[in-house]
Design a protein around this nucleic acid. Structure first.
Lengths: 323, 323
DNA sequence: ATGAAAGCGCTAACAA
DNA sequence: TTGTTAGCGCTTTCAT
């Protein structure tokens, strides 16, 4: 209880009248220990509130019980949700999450991977900007890449192409003939996939695509893209993600351009808030929870690719073209 | 480079032709080592890409290089920003962030603190729901509480009372006589502080306060609170945080109630997005970055209270009362 | 200024 | 089934 000195396995052993090795066994391989002994040990463990020192354990087992999660920007709700899901899965697996937010600095991915590679049992890498080219720094530590296929490593891909195609067909069915695409970060695999899907399906359905401003995938960047969008003949916009789409809606409404009456807007991903805005955002919904969970779960597993499908969700920000 | 086997201090020692102890000294107490030796060691360290095993080091020094950050909900932008700032500070101090998102489960705080107390050099605890009553589980590990004063422990308080009072005076000056307050979580110190500040300054300025629905501090809860708000005679609303305020605005606009013409709205904290909405949110701006940074910085320091001041920011969601 | 030796707390052979 | 022994990789006295 109020004890502040560290309780070691020796303390437990002494109090239980057994050897430390027996305590270790009782905890790690209970079936190898006589029931009576095990119970006595367990009682003392509880009584003394003994928690094994992970560092010492890791030193010998080679396992640390930590998994590093590397994320470009935690304030992006998409990544926050992914990290949260990963955290839940980690707890279930008795792993701890070592969080690295690389922020502005793409090189930080490399540094983090290098210094952490021997301190963690695995890496979960959300949308790497650099690391996928510098795999050597991972050493022998397993890694799962989310939303970036990386040869020789496990990856979780949230495929949006089919959903994006559905979105484009939806726009075509509403009578739109010109669509603007507001892109995401250059280094993002997801941004490339979505852009290509827009291009491809637009071509297939006879829509003209006008690609505008590539920026950080933020609300602000979306709002800033409005100028470029209205300079095109587009009557509909697809944005890389929900943040940008929400920014677009805000920027458009500030110019008294009505969404969806004058311009339809679609978000390339989704956030909880998108359901509640005026109008609610028509969007591509990503299996974020599954992806975050799978990233941790598959760390031990085969280094293959898991594909999860996004879905198109029609809400209020798209409407038939007017005039 | 491509080496995948772990490089140990012995490898470095052998290659540099010195004893492991000397390598250790060259790294940790360079002044105790002859310049020539030190340079030779450093060269080998770089050549072999040697990174000391933190677990082994921690076993003997008692320091782990980890700091645990306990947060109730990472998808809340306020906490994400705090964690991000803490992460920056941690990197500067060569610490790693062990993230625990307790989610729904307040008890998880206790469990996490107990199991981690010997694996980390300190705790940063963002808005505890349980932990402040169960301090024993922290053992001797230092802790910094953010937005909850805890006797005997360091705390970082973002005081909003003066800013809230300014907000209320602002409303009074605009002619409002009835204000609704949409509260935050019961267990939140910040929510209590803000509510009390609203009560106190309303009384002082002759405003009537109508307190409505206490819920999770989310956009959705804010939107849901609209019914309760319009049932009061209030012409202005103060919400516990920006998320709820944004939800209120969305919910009101869905009912075709104009903000700020018919109802003024103020957010009890702020998010980047609040600048960009229509109307931009009048809000209380919190020193989130300083708080996150200070939380890590002060971990070693005195167990006292640091108070940071929030500021009132008038934007577009408040206006003179009509009629 | 450097080497030798001990040991942090734990687990995994190996014996008994 | 349990105890003994050794050692994970590192830092830190204590000698030299």
């Amino acid at each position: 209880m109020g004890r502040t000195e560290r309780v070691t396995i020796e303390d437990v052993a002494a109090r239980a009248g057994v050897h430390a090795a027996t305590v270790s066994r009782a905890l790690n391989h209970p079936e190898q220990v006589a029931a009576a002994t095990r119970e006595r040990v367990e009682a003392v463990v509880a009584e003394l509130d003994f928690v094994p020192n992970r560092a010492a354990r890791g030193l010998i087992t080679g396992r640390t019980g930590n998994v590093a999660v590397i994320v470009p920007d935690l304030t992006n709700p998409h990544f926050a949700a992914l990290v949260q899901a990963a955290g839940r899965a980690a707890r279930g697996a008795e792993l701890q999450l070592l969080l690295v937010d690389t922020g502005e600095y793409a090189d930080e991915e490399i540094r983090a991977a290098r210094t952490l590679s021997h301190e963690v049992d695995g890496f979960v890498i959300l949308s790497p900007r650099r690391l996928h080219r510098e795999l050597a720094v991972l050493g022998a530590t397993p890694a799962v890449f989310v939303n970036r296929p990386v040869k020789g490593h496990a990856s979780i891909i949230m495929r949006t192409a089919p959903a994006v195609e559905e979105a484009v067909r939806h726009l075509a069915a509403l009578g739109h003939t010109h669509v603007a695409y507001v892109g995401g970060p250059k280094a993002s695999w997801a941004a490339t996939e979505r852009r290509d899907a827009v291009r491809r399906s637009s071509a297939a359905t006879g829509l003209s695509v006008h690609e505008v401003a590539v920026g950080p995938p933020t609300f602000e960047a979306g709002a800033d893209a409005v100028d470029a969008v209205v300079a095109t003949p587009a009557t509909a916009v697809v944005a890389f993600n929900a943040q940008m789409a929400l920014g677009l809606i805000a920027g458009l409404s500030r110019r008294d351009i009505s969404v969806p009456d004058e311009i339809s807007v679609i978000g390339g991903d989704d956030v909880p808030m998108a359901l509640m805005t005026a109008p609610p955002l028509t969007a591509i919904s990503l299996p974020t929870d599954e992806a975050g969970t799978a990233a941790v779960t598959r760390l031990g597993g085969p280094g293959d690719r898991l594909e999860l499908e996004a879905t198109f969700v029609e809400r209020g920000s798209t409407a038939p073209v007017s005039r």
